[in-house]
């Protein structure tokens, strides 16, 4: 029995969970576009470029899923969400998936009822301070004023870190990355704390990046990844294996340069299964046989996406580190395509 809801204020609150357990794949196909929740603006991860087009590391995950499902990487409706309203948007069915630097935690998975389909960036919380402050360790921050994004795991980690070190601090809770940067740069807070990747991204946009230093302590584990609602396993599988296809492609050496050539058939059975020339993996997902090829055609494999948006050649300049392929000593690892 499917009831419709016209629920005034409460519907606005996002509890009109009509489509919670409906088939998201059918919805997306019927709409002809994928509603993807992204950050309100973290350069490198998700931010509109000069022409207003959304680009970034997380955006490319949305685009890959859209390409896999609809065959068109531009059939994405980007819904910019603050850290505070992102879960409500996903739970209510306003968006089909969320790719917004979101940390996979127990309570978000179990209590908030979301399925994290994987990790696309292994991150950790760090602190940025102006160099002039002369601080070299986060342990010296007793009594500091700290800017944080409200509604994040950061907020809780921060409380834990200062409590376990017996230090006091003054939190300045703000809604978006942009607000935090403004307050931090104006000196209204001494410290800005969030995930190390987002700090690097913010610092790259500053006028004088060298005046700011990211302290060495990483105070938390922040595995960031795309997530969907509980209750629709088929849709969860599609997003999960699209992400895995990007990761596996890097491991198998499939790049945007050789994709066309490889999709004519290769000697490697796994590449053939991935690209749909062998087996019926696409059919099992309820997609076309060339779903992974479409996803990879958007901006290449995981490694290419990383290098394009946040890698060492960009202004953000993040090293692969933990996010290298497992064969290179990192944590990025896709289960086999079999």
């Amino acid at each position: 029995m499917k009831k419709t809801i016209i629920f005034g204020a409460m519907a606005v609150a996002g509890m009109a969970a009509v489509s919670a357990s409906a088939a998201t794949l059918d919805d997306v196909k019927a709409k002809g576009e994928l509603a993807c929740g992204v950050n309100t603006g973290v350069v490198g991860f998700a931010a509109p470029d000069a022409s207003g087009k959304w680009v970034g590391f997380d955006v490319d995950v949305c685009r890959a899923v859209a390409a896999a499902v609809l065959g068109d990487s531009n059939a994405v409706k980007y819904v910019p969400l603050t850290s505070k309203n992102r879960f409500t948007a996903l739970a209510s069915g306003e968006i089909d998936m969320l790719a917004r630097n979101t940390t996979w935690t127990f309570s978000r998975d179990v209590d908030l009822k979301f399925t994290f389909v994987g990790v696309n960036y292994y991150d950790g919380q760090a602190f940025m301070v102006p160099k002039a402050l002369g601080v070299t360790s986060a342990k010296e921050l007793d009594g500091a004023t700290v800017c944080i994004q409200t509604g994040t795991t950061t907020e809780l980690n921060l409380a834990d870190f200062f409590r376990s070190n017996g230090m006091s601090y003054e939190p300045v809770p703000l809604d978006t990355n942009a607000e935090n940067q403004k307050n931090y740069l104006a000196g209204a807070c001494d410290v800005y704390t969030t995930d190390a990747s987002a700090l690097a991204s913010s610092r790259a946009t500053f006028e004088n990046p060298d005046d700011h230093v990211i302290l060495p302590e990483i105070v938390s584990k922040e595995p960031l990844g795309p997530l969907v609602r509980h209750g629709d396993n088929q849709w969860g599988d599609i997003v999960r294996w699209t992400l895995n296809a990007l990761i596996a492609a890097e491991e198998l050496g499939v790049t945007s340069a050789n994709l066309a050539e490889m999709s004519n058939g290769t000697n490697s059975p796994e590449i053939n299964r991935l690209l749909g020339t062998e087996g019926s993996l696409g059919e099992m997902l309820g997609l076309s046989a060339d779903w992974a090829k479409n996803a990879l055609a958007v901006s290449g494999n995981y490694g290419e996406i990383f290098e394009t948006h946040i890698g060492e050649s960009t202004a953000i300049g993040l090293a692969r580190g933990l996010n290298a392929q497992w064969i290179n000593g990192g944590l990025i690892y896709s289960p086999p395509f079999r």
């Binding site: 505070k84 879960f87 409500t88 409200t150």
Partner: peptide
Amino acid sequence: AIAVGYMDVTGTLGGITLNQTGREM
């Protein structure tokens, strides 16, 4: 208030608590 980071009841109960516990309703 949340626009300027003032922690009123919308910021605490309707903001952080709602977000951390997922209890919108």
